[in-house]
Amino acid sequence: MPRIIKDGGIVEDAALILGIEDVDALADDADRRCFLPLSYWLDRYADRNDGSEYPHVWVGSHDPTESLTPHLSKIAAIAVYFERFSDGTGFSTAAHLREVCGYKGELRAFGHILADQAIALRRCGFNAMALPEGESLDTALSLLLTAGLSYQGSIYNPRTPFKFRFQEAGLND
């Protein structure tokens, strides 16, 4: 089974992230968790209001993430796609979802990301990461576990660079 990093550990995860081309065939596979493309998700679920939980959704760099805002409280997981590791849009997408929209569910980074980016991803609000082939989950995890000091803190513990010279708390975020 595929493995991802989630909440600071490596876990097995069978969730499918579906492209728009195969979403019809697989979205109803009740045995597996699916992340649906944003446009498809909006078409099918934006107007549903029966109190049940929505399926998961994934967003790309250019997707209008704002359209999810009214529904966030019912979405348990959002995956953010990185087209290239050097395209850092996803870092701000995550930070915006956490900070401005107050999103509390799972935020998962997937696509072309590097193990070296694990710490920055976590600081921007991702609590889950699915690495592409060739990137080591163990490397990413060990980076997360040994993450040193940062001037900015994280989404969960933002600070000015000088604040931690006065307050000793929370240095390892």
Binding site: G88, S92, A95, C124, S150, Y151
Partner: peptide
């Protein structure tokens, strides 16, 4: 310096 959000 090493801002997590603005490195790329």
């Amino acid at each position: 310096t090493v801002h997590p959000e603005f490195a790329f």
